[in-house]
Simulated assay, not measured.
Amino acid sequence: MTQIPRSALILGLAGVIPFAWGALTLLSDAASQWGVDVLGPRFVGPYVQLSYGMVILSFMSGVLWGFATKARGAQAATGYILSVIPALWAFFMTGGGPVSAGMNLIFGFLGLLVLDFSFWKWNLAPSWWMHLRLLLTTLVVVCLSVGVVL
C-alpha cells in the first residue's frame, strides 16, 4: 500500500467533523447549548450524526459505484449491486429512534468497510484506500458510539 494522498486525508478527516461535533454536544451541555443557539437544534447531538451519517453512507455508495465502473463483466455487475447497499441501508435502517438508528449506522459503516475491502482486493480502489477507510471508519464508529451509549 502507498501513503494516503494529503488532500484525501484532509478531506476525509474533515468529513468526520459532524460526527465528532455530534459526540461533543452529547458530552458537553455548553457545546450543545451553543450549537442550538447558533446552528439550530438539528445540528447537535444525535440529530447531526444521524442525518449526516445517512448522507455519508449514500455518498459512499456513489464512490463504490465509481470503483465498479473499472470492472468488467460479472465483476462489474457484482460491484454495481454491492455499491447500492450502503445507501439502501441508510434509507431503510435509520428509523426507530436515535439509539437504534445510531446502532444501525454503526453496522452500516462496518459493513461499508467490508465492501471497501472487497473493492480494494479486486484492485478497483486505490492502493492506499484501506488505510484511509480504516482510519475514518474507526473515528466515525467511536463518535456514533457516544450517541448510542449516552
Rank of each mutant, 00 (worst) to 15 (best):
Q49G: 13
W21N: 00
V48K: 02
W65P: 01
Y47S: 15
S51F: 12
T25V: 10
I17M: 11
R72H: 12
A68M: 11
A30C: 00
T25M: 11
V36Q: 14
M54N: 14
L26F: 02
G35L: 07
G62I: 05
V38M: 12
P18L: 08
M60L: 15
L24H: 02
G15C: 08
Y47P: 01
V36W: 00
V48M: 05
P41R: 13
W65H: 08
V36C: 01
Q49C: 07
V48L: 15
L24W: 14
Y52F: 15
A71V: 05
S58A: 15
Q33C: 00
Q49W: 02
P41F: 04
G62M: 12
P18N: 08
D29M: 06
G66V: 04
F19S: 03
P46G: 14
L27K: 08
M60P: 03
G40K: 10
G53I: 05
W65A: 15
G45V: 04
A20D: 02
I56P: 01
G40L: 10
L64S: 10
M54A: 14
G15K: 01
G45A: 12
L39W: 13
L27P: 03
P41E: 14
I56D: 00
G35Q: 09
M60R: 00
V55K: 00
Q49P: 03
W34S: 04
R42E: 13
Q49N: 13
V48W: 01
G45F: 05
L39S: 06
V16K: 02
G45W: 04
V44S: 05
G66F: 11
V38Y: 09
S28G: 06
S32M: 12
W65C: 09
R42Q: 13
L50T: 01
G40H: 10
G35T: 02
L57T: 05
L24V: 14
D29F: 03
A23C: 10
L24F: 11
L27F: 07
T25K: 07
S58N: 08
P41K: 13
V63K: 07
V44F: 07
L39M: 13
M54H: 00
G35R: 09
L39H: 03
P46C: 08
V44D: 00
Q33D: 13
M54T: 10
Q33P: 01
L26D: 04
G53F: 10
S28V: 02
L50V: 12
L50N: 11
W34P: 00
T69A: 10
T69D: 09
R42N: 12
W34Q: 04
D29C: 00
D29L: 11
W65Y: 13
G53S: 12
M60E: 03
R72F: 04
S61L: 10
A68I: 09
R72D: 12
Y52I: 04
V63T: 14
M60I: 12
A14E: 04
A14I: 15
M54D: 11
A20G: 14
A31G: 04
V16C: 15
F59S: 02
I56W: 04
I56A: 08
Q33Y: 01
W65L: 15
L26W: 03
I17Q: 00
S61V: 06
Q49Y: 01
W34C: 02
A31L: 09
M54C: 14
G53Y: 06
V36T: 14
L57N: 04
A31T: 04
W21P: 01
V38D: 00
V16L: 12
L50H: 12
G53H: 10
F67R: 05
D29R: 12
I56R: 07
A68Q: 05
L27V: 07
